[in-house]
Design a protein around this nucleic acid. Structure first.
Length: 273
DNA sequence: GCATTACCCTGAAAGC
DNA sequence: TGCTTTCAGGGTAATG
């Protein structure tokens, strides 16, 4: 399940391989993803040149020339490969974008929760999905003071807050739970019960977890692969995620699982309050 | 207005 | 062994 570190890993690879190439052809499976890909997508994208590859939250943005954007979200099970030459299309391939150097971008997504869209706008802030996103956890705006101010007026569970892309953009279930463990905060704590010191611990934990995961090129728990088909390494460093019944690395208590808003939460009942 | 729940989908795992 | 059921989850729409 690609979160920000996995998307960042893909974007860093694509930045080396995609800019400067012109789109010469687009193939679409015709099946709907999160939304239908309109027939106009092919007509709009063919002929444009990829100028840059960017990331906002879990979204990948191809900046095109003349200025416009191709927006990609990997959803739960999406993969984006950049192959040197036309290759075999894996099962559940929904889009193939052929480039001027004979390479091709392949987008596959078995569960079809992903997104592929074209936006004829000058700035990424004009794309509704991007405008709705909150601060990036690695940006200068994400500070302990900012986080404490946000938590103070919020009555939800801290886990629900951290998962909400409108507040902090990029976190998913894995890194939220890992950050809460490192900060010693129970996932069901109400936001407005956290004090300034806890908010500071949480802000630091989020940054450290995300930085470590980016360094390890993401977590390949089930099937994540980067744009060259390489698996990530961060699964070896997870401390609570999917470790129900195993012992806490810090206090030897048994890791527990609860369900919040239909999602699993893993935590140490002794270390996290 | 805010918070929670249901839904989309398929593959893997569990249950029978 | 083989079929059926359950579960997983990101984002959004619907509901409370």
């Amino acid at each position: 399940m690609p979160e920000m570190p996995e998307v960042e890993t893909i974007v860093r690879r694509l930045r080396r391989s995609a800019p400067g190439r012109r789109v010469v052809d687009v193939w679409l499976s015709g099946l709907p993803l999160r939304r239908e890909i309109p027939d106009s997508f092919r007509r709009e994208v063919v002929g444009r040149v990829i100028r840059a590859v960017r990331r906002r939250g879990k979204y990948i943005l191809f900046e095109l020339e003349p200025r416009s954007y191709c927006l990609v979200h990997l959803g739960m099970s999406g993969r984006l490969f950049h192959l040197n030459a036309a290759g075999e299309r894996p099962l559940h391939t929904h889009a193939v974008i052929r480039l001027s150097d004979s390479s091709e971008l392949q987008f596959s997504d078995p569960r079809r929760f992903g997104l592929l869209a074209f936006h004829d706008v000058r700035r990424i802030g004009l794309i509704p999905e991007i405008r709705a996103l909150g601060v990036d956890p690695l940006s200068d705006r994400f500070t302990p003071a900012w986080l404490f101010a946000k938590l103070t007026g919020c009555r939800r569970d801290v886990k629900a807050f951290l998962l909400d892309q409108r507040g902090i953009a990029g976190l998913g279930n894995i890194y939220v739970l890992e950050a809460l463990f490192r900060a010693g905060i129970h996932p069901a704590r109400r936001c407005d019960t956290l004090d300034a010191a806890e908010a500071a611990r949480l802000a630091g934990a989020v940054r450290r977890v995300i930085r470590a995961a980016v360094r390890h090129r993401g977590t390949s728990f089930s099937d994540f692969m980067d744009s060259e088909g390489r698996r990530g390494e961060h699964q070896r460093f997870l401390r609570v995620f999917q470790r129900e019944g195993e012992t806490c690395i810090r206090c030897r208590a048994e890791i527990e699982r609860i369900v919040q808003s239909g999602r699993s939460s893993f935590y140490c009942p002794r270390c996290q309050r």
